[in-house]
Simulated assay, not measured.
Amino acid sequence: MSRTTATNATRWGDRDQRRIDILLAGEELLRDGGYAALRMRDVADGAGISLGTVYTYFATKEDLFIGIFAENVVRLTGKLRRQIETASDFAEVFIATATQYREQYQVFGRQFDALGLVQESGGLQPAVEQRLRAATADLVATLGRGLIDQGYEGDVGLAMTLLWSTVTGLANHYTTARQEFLTVPWEDAVAFAAESLGRSLDVN
Protein backbone atom coordinates (compact mmCIF):
# COMPACT_ATOMS: atom_id res chain seq x y z
CA MET A 1 0.00 0.00 0.00
CA SER A 2 1.53 3.31 -1.03
CA ARG A 3 0.96 6.47 0.91
CA THR A 4 1.95 10.04 0.36
CA THR A 5 3.89 11.26 3.37
CA ALA A 6 3.33 14.86 4.37
CA THR A 7 6.31 17.09 3.74
CA ASN A 8 7.89 19.34 6.32
CA ALA A 9 6.26 22.30 4.58
CA THR A 10 3.86 22.73 7.50
CA ARG A 11 5.44 25.24 9.84
CA TRP A 12 5.95 24.37 13.48
CA GLY A 13 3.10 25.85 15.48
CA ASP A 14 0.63 25.89 12.58
CA ARG A 15 -2.02 23.86 14.41
CA ASP A 16 -4.71 24.22 11.76
CA GLN A 17 -2.49 22.88 9.01
CA ARG A 18 -1.20 20.08 11.25
CA ARG A 19 -4.80 19.02 11.83
CA ILE A 20 -5.39 18.98 8.09
CA ASP A 21 -2.22 16.90 7.58
CA ILE A 22 -3.50 14.35 10.12
CA LEU A 23 -6.97 14.20 8.56
CA LEU A 24 -5.57 13.75 5.04
CA ALA A 25 -3.18 11.00 6.15
CA GLY A 26 -6.00 9.23 7.96
CA GLU A 27 -8.37 9.54 5.03
CA GLU A 28 -5.81 8.00 2.69
CA LEU A 29 -5.47 5.01 4.99
CA LEU A 30 -9.27 4.66 5.19
CA ARG A 31 -9.68 4.77 1.43
CA ASP A 32 -6.90 2.24 0.90
CA GLY A 33 -7.78 -0.28 3.58
CA GLY A 34 -10.93 0.64 5.47
CA TYR A 35 -11.35 1.25 9.18
CA ALA A 36 -8.95 -1.54 10.16
CA ALA A 37 -6.16 0.29 8.33
CA LEU A 38 -6.68 3.49 10.31
CA ARG A 39 -3.79 2.97 12.73
CA MET A 40 -2.62 6.01 14.66
CA ARG A 41 1.09 5.27 14.16
CA ASP A 42 0.58 5.02 10.38
CA VAL A 43 -1.36 8.28 10.47
CA ALA A 44 1.57 9.92 12.24
CA ASP A 45 3.97 8.59 9.62
CA GLY A 46 1.74 9.80 6.81
CA ALA A 47 1.42 13.25 8.35
CA GLY A 48 5.15 13.48 9.02
CA ILE A 49 4.76 13.99 12.77
CA SER A 50 5.20 12.05 15.99
CA LEU A 51 2.57 9.67 17.34
CA GLY A 52 2.25 11.82 20.44
CA THR A 53 1.38 14.84 18.31
CA VAL A 54 -1.49 12.94 16.67
CA TYR A 55 -2.96 12.24 20.11
CA THR A 56 -2.89 15.93 21.01
CA TYR A 57 -5.41 16.47 18.20
CA PHE A 58 -7.42 13.24 18.37
CA ALA A 59 -7.54 11.32 21.63
CA THR A 60 -8.73 8.05 20.09
CA LYS A 61 -9.02 6.30 16.77
CA GLU A 62 -12.79 6.86 16.94
CA ASP A 63 -12.29 10.60 17.33
CA LEU A 64 -10.00 10.64 14.31
CA PHE A 65 -12.45 8.61 12.23
CA ILE A 66 -15.29 10.98 13.08
CA GLY A 67 -13.03 13.96 12.35
CA ILE A 68 -12.32 12.59 8.89
CA PHE A 69 -15.98 11.78 8.37
CA ALA A 70 -17.07 15.29 9.35
CA GLU A 71 -14.64 16.92 6.91
CA ASN A 72 -15.99 14.71 4.15
CA VAL A 73 -19.54 15.77 5.01
CA VAL A 74 -18.42 19.40 4.69
CA ARG A 75 -16.94 18.71 1.24
CA LEU A 76 -20.00 16.72 0.20
CA THR A 77 -22.28 19.59 1.20
CA GLY A 78 -20.21 22.08 -0.80
CA LYS A 79 -20.45 19.94 -3.93
CA LEU A 80 -24.17 19.37 -3.48
CA ARG A 81 -24.86 23.04 -2.82
CA ARG A 82 -23.37 23.96 -6.20
CA GLN A 83 -25.30 21.18 -7.95
CA ILE A 84 -28.56 22.05 -6.23
CA GLU A 85 -28.23 25.72 -7.17
CA THR A 86 -28.11 24.82 -10.87
CA ALA A 87 -30.57 21.89 -10.82
CA SER A 88 -33.53 22.17 -13.15
CA ASP A 89 -35.83 19.76 -11.29
CA PHE A 90 -36.20 17.56 -8.22
CA ALA A 91 -34.90 14.44 -9.98
CA GLU A 92 -31.61 16.16 -10.67
CA VAL A 93 -31.30 17.17 -7.00
CA PHE A 94 -32.09 13.66 -5.77
CA ILE A 95 -29.79 11.88 -8.21
CA ALA A 96 -26.90 14.21 -7.38
CA THR A 97 -27.45 13.68 -3.67
CA ALA A 98 -27.74 9.89 -3.90
CA THR A 99 -24.69 9.59 -6.14
CA GLN A 100 -22.47 11.79 -3.97
CA TYR A 101 -23.62 10.01 -0.83
CA ARG A 102 -22.96 6.59 -2.34
CA GLU A 103 -19.34 7.58 -3.00
CA GLN A 104 -18.90 8.60 0.63
CA TYR A 105 -20.71 5.50 1.89
CA GLN A 106 -18.18 3.26 0.16
CA VAL A 107 -15.52 4.66 2.50
CA PHE A 108 -17.46 5.47 5.68
CA GLY A 109 -20.93 3.99 5.75
CA ARG A 110 -19.95 0.35 5.88
CA GLN A 111 -17.67 0.93 8.85
CA PHE A 112 -19.77 2.90 11.33
CA ASP A 113 -22.96 4.78 11.81
CA ALA A 114 -21.14 7.99 12.72
CA LEU A 115 -24.00 9.52 14.66
CA GLY A 116 -24.54 6.22 16.46
CA LEU A 117 -20.92 6.25 17.53
CA VAL A 118 -21.50 9.62 19.19
CA GLN A 119 -24.13 8.02 21.44
CA GLU A 120 -21.86 5.25 22.73
CA SER A 121 -20.66 5.41 26.30
CA GLY A 122 -17.72 7.73 26.73
CA GLY A 123 -18.67 9.77 23.69
CA LEU A 124 -16.24 11.77 21.63
CA GLN A 125 -14.05 14.79 22.16
CA PRO A 126 -16.43 17.77 22.38
CA ALA A 127 -14.81 19.63 19.47
CA VAL A 128 -14.98 16.54 17.24
CA GLU A 129 -18.61 15.87 18.10
CA GLN A 130 -19.53 19.51 17.57
CA ARG A 131 -17.87 19.51 14.15
CA LEU A 132 -19.80 16.40 13.13
CA ARG A 133 -23.13 17.77 14.30
CA ALA A 134 -22.58 21.13 12.60
CA ALA A 135 -21.52 19.49 9.33
CA THR A 136 -24.50 17.13 9.36
CA ALA A 137 -26.95 19.91 10.19
CA ASP A 138 -25.61 22.00 7.31
CA LEU A 139 -25.98 19.08 4.90
CA VAL A 140 -29.59 18.45 5.94
CA ALA A 141 -30.41 22.16 5.76
CA THR A 142 -28.87 22.42 2.29
CA LEU A 143 -30.95 19.52 1.01
CA GLY A 144 -34.06 20.92 2.66
CA ARG A 145 -33.57 24.26 0.92
CA GLY A 146 -33.08 22.43 -2.35
CA LEU A 147 -36.39 20.65 -1.85
CA ILE A 148 -38.17 23.94 -1.18
CA ASP A 149 -36.53 25.53 -4.22
CA GLN A 150 -38.05 22.78 -6.35
CA GLY A 151 -41.55 23.70 -5.19
CA TYR A 152 -42.18 21.46 -2.20
CA GLU A 153 -44.74 23.02 0.13
CA GLY A 154 -45.24 20.31 2.74
CA ASP A 155 -43.48 19.39 5.96
CA VAL A 156 -39.77 19.51 5.12
CA GLY A 157 -38.82 17.45 8.17
CA LEU A 158 -41.06 14.57 7.13
CA ALA A 159 -39.92 14.80 3.52
CA MET A 160 -36.25 14.79 4.53
CA THR A 161 -36.82 11.70 6.67
CA LEU A 162 -38.18 9.86 3.65
CA LEU A 163 -35.54 11.15 1.25
CA TRP A 164 -32.60 10.50 3.56
CA SER A 165 -33.80 6.99 4.35
CA THR A 166 -34.03 6.28 0.63
CA VAL A 167 -30.60 7.73 -0.11
CA THR A 168 -28.90 5.75 2.66
CA GLY A 169 -30.80 2.60 1.75
CA LEU A 170 -29.75 2.80 -1.88
CA ALA A 171 -26.14 3.46 -0.88
CA ASN A 172 -26.15 0.50 1.47
CA HIS A 173 -27.60 -1.86 -1.09
CA TYR A 174 -25.27 -0.83 -3.88
CA THR A 175 -22.00 -0.81 -1.91
CA THR A 176 -22.34 -4.03 0.08
CA ALA A 177 -22.77 -7.72 -0.72
CA ARG A 178 -26.47 -7.05 -1.23
CA GLN A 179 -25.70 -5.73 -4.70
CA GLU A 180 -25.09 -9.32 -5.83
CA PHE A 181 -28.84 -9.90 -5.59
CA LEU A 182 -29.85 -6.73 -7.42
CA THR A 183 -30.68 -7.00 -11.11
CA VAL A 184 -31.25 -3.28 -11.64
CA PRO A 185 -28.25 -1.04 -12.42
CA TRP A 186 -27.57 1.87 -10.03
CA GLU A 187 -28.50 4.49 -12.62
CA ASP A 188 -31.90 2.93 -13.24
CA ALA A 189 -32.64 2.43 -9.54
CA VAL A 190 -31.78 6.00 -8.52
CA ALA A 191 -33.69 7.47 -11.48
CA PHE A 192 -36.77 5.41 -10.59
CA ALA A 193 -36.51 6.50 -6.94
CA ALA A 194 -36.22 10.14 -7.99
CA GLU A 195 -39.27 9.89 -10.24
CA SER A 196 -41.37 8.04 -7.66
CA LEU A 197 -40.42 10.33 -4.77
CA GLY A 198 -40.89 13.44 -6.85
CA ARG A 199 -44.37 12.33 -7.81
CA SER A 200 -45.33 11.50 -4.22
CA LEU A 201 -44.01 14.88 -3.00
CA ASP A 202 -45.62 16.68 -5.93
CA VAL A 203 -42.39 18.31 -7.09
CA ASN A 204 -41.98 16.69 -10.54
Rank of each mutant, 00 (worst) to 15 (best):
1 M>N: 10
1 M>T: 14
1 M>L: 10
4 T>I: 14
5 T>K: 11
7 T>N: 09
10 T>N: 11
11 R>M: 06
13 G>N: 14
14 D>Y: 09
14 D>C: 13
16 D>G: 15
17 Q>T: 15
17 Q>I: 15
20 I>K: 15
20 I>L: 13
23 L>E: 09
23 L>A: 14
37 A>L: 02
38 L>D: 00
40 M>N: 00
42 D>P: 06
48 G>V: 03
50 S>D: 00
51 L>I: 04
53 T>C: 01
55 Y>N: 00
55 Y>Q: 00
56 T>P: 00
57 Y>M: 01
57 Y>V: 00
58 F>Q: 01
62 E>A: 15
63 D>S: 03
64 L>R: 01
69 F>C: 13
70 A>C: 10
71 E>P: 01
73 V>E: 11
73 V>T: 14
78 G>S: 08
80 L>F: 10
80 L>W: 06
82 R>E: 11
83 Q>T: 12
83 Q>K: 13
84 I>G: 06
86 T>K: 05
87 A>V: 01
90 F>C: 02
95 I>A: 06
96 A>K: 03
98 A>E: 06
98 A>Q: 09
100 Q>D: 14
101 Y>A: 12
105 Y>E: 06
107 V>A: 08
108 F>Q: 03
108 F>C: 07
111 Q>N: 06
118 V>A: 08
119 Q>E: 10
119 Q>C: 05
123 G>Q: 05
123 G>I: 07
124 L>S: 01
125 Q>I: 07
126 P>E: 02
127 A>Q: 12
130 Q>I: 07
130 Q>V: 10
132 L>G: 14
138 D>W: 02
141 A>E: 12
144 G>D: 10
144 G>Q: 08
144 G>E: 09
147 L>W: 08
148 I>W: 06
152 Y>F: 15
152 Y>D: 12
154 G>L: 07
156 V>G: 04
158 L>E: 04
158 L>I: 12
159 A>S: 09
159 A>Q: 10
162 L>D: 03
168 T>Y: 03
169 G>A: 04
170 L>M: 15
174 Y>G: 03
175 T>V: 08
175 T>A: 02
181 F>A: 14
183 T>L: 15
185 P>K: 10
186 W>F: 15
186 W>D: 09
189 A>C: 13
191 A>N: 05
194 A>N: 06
196 S>V: 12
197 L>H: 07
198 G>I: 12
198 G>M: 09
199 R>N: 10
202 D>E: 14
204 N>Q: 10
